[in-house]
């Protein structure tokens, strides 16, 4: 009889233990694991980081080895206000147990309005930026760290301007004028040398369209059009420089500079300025870098930190895409 009782007690004890383990397994799903906290931090981080380009009127797309940066110069919005509004909305829409902050490279907290260019294309250390690294965007600037890096990619540029060319480049017979400074309507001085001296060189294509839909493009040798028989230029000596005259304006010019000695100068400079260096037109730009690898990313030199106040864990990283 003792045996039976003892057997039953032991059996019940094991059943109890089993049920305990099973209930622990069931309740495990309601405990917030470190992985779930991390997933939440990553989600909020990417939520913010992926919006930053559109808040500064830039669109960045990657397609295998091609990186395209679409831009508006100068911006049609107040970018400081836009950044501040975005931060306010993030604070509004983020749960109160998460703290969002931006940090400069010295890891000091800065306001979101302290988030500045350049867009760094890494690991190549190519910088896509504007004068004084601010969002005024009066010019488009691309810096390359050295000639050997620039020699390894090509650049494809498409610009749309909100002004009218002095003449239609698709009708070359109308484009024979000479401006007061001695330049033509579409004037290269100096011209790209098509890599005459050998590498290092930068390969390029260029297309500029005005508000009448007239397009000047390089390389182009179509009969009847203003020719542009260039597709590359050396990374030494003087940079190839294009100047395009604007209709009914003796001072507003579209200016484009590429290549030359890049030790202390940008690889690319595009601006639409008058004689007083004020912007005199709006440019929508599409700049495509074609690399021979897809292993690259674009980053801003500001850290974003998302801190979970409950667990005191955080995700801190550069804002990148």
């Amino acid at each position: 009889m003792k045996g039976v009782v003892f057997t039953l007690l032991t059996f019940m004890l094991f059943l109890f233990l089993f049920e305990l383990v099973a209930s622990l397994a069931r309740s495990g799903s309601s405990i917030i694991t470190p992985q779930e906290i991390n997933k939440r931090l990553v989600n909020v981080f990417s939520n913010i980081a992926e919006n930053i380009p559109s808040v500064v009127q830039v669109n960045i797309t990657k397609n295998q080895g091609n990186l395209t940066i679409s831009d508006v110069l100068p911006p049609t919005i107040n970018i400081s206000s836009s950044l501040q509004a975005f931060q306010n909305f993030i604070n509004f829409s983020t749960p109160s147990d998460l703290n969002i902050s931006f940090l400069n490279p010295s890891m000091q907290v800065v306001p979101i309005t302290g988030l500045n260019p350049p867009f760094q294309i890494l690991p190549f250390n190519i910088n896509y930026t504007y004068p004084s690294n601010n969002w005024g965007k009066t010019q488009q600037l691309v810096y390359c760290p050295n000639a050997s890096t620039c020699n390894n990619f090509s650049i494809h540029l498409n610009y749309i301007i909100n002004q009218t060319f002095q003449c239609n480049p698709q009708n070359a017979s109308n484009c024979t004028g000479v401006n007061s400074d001695g330049s033509n309507e579409f004037s290269w001085n100096p011209q790209p040398d098509n890599c005459a001296g050998g590498p290092p060189c930068i390969n390029f294509t260029l297309s500029i369209t005005d508000n009448q839909g007239h397009t000047y493009s390089c390389p182009n040798s179509l009969p009847g059009t203003v020719p542009c028989p260039f597709n590359s230029t050396s990374l030494s000596g003087n940079a190839a420089t294009l100047q395009i005259a604007i209709l009914q304006s003796s001072v507003c010019k579209f200016k484009f500079t590429l290549g030359g000695n890049i030790a202390n100068a940008p690889l690319l400079q595009m601006r639409m300025l008058d004689n007083n260096n004020n912007t005199c037109g709006l440019v929508l730009s599409n700049t495509t870098f074609s690399f021979n690898t897809s292993s690259f990313y674009v980053s801003l030199p500001t850290y974003l930190r998302v801190l979970d106040l409950n667990s005191n864990t955080s995700k801190t990283d550069f804002i990148f895409k």
Binding site: N43, N47, I48, E50, N51, S54, V55, Q57, T76, I77, N78, S81, S82, A85, F86, F89, I90, S93
Partner: peptide, 19 residues
């Protein structure tokens, strides 16, 4: 799954955000 989108406008009156 949830995401936030920002559509900045030329002024605060035409700036929009989506959740």
């Amino acid at each position: 799954a949830q995401r936030v989108f920002a559509y900045p406008g030329s002024s605060w009156q035409n700036s929009y955000f989506e959740i």
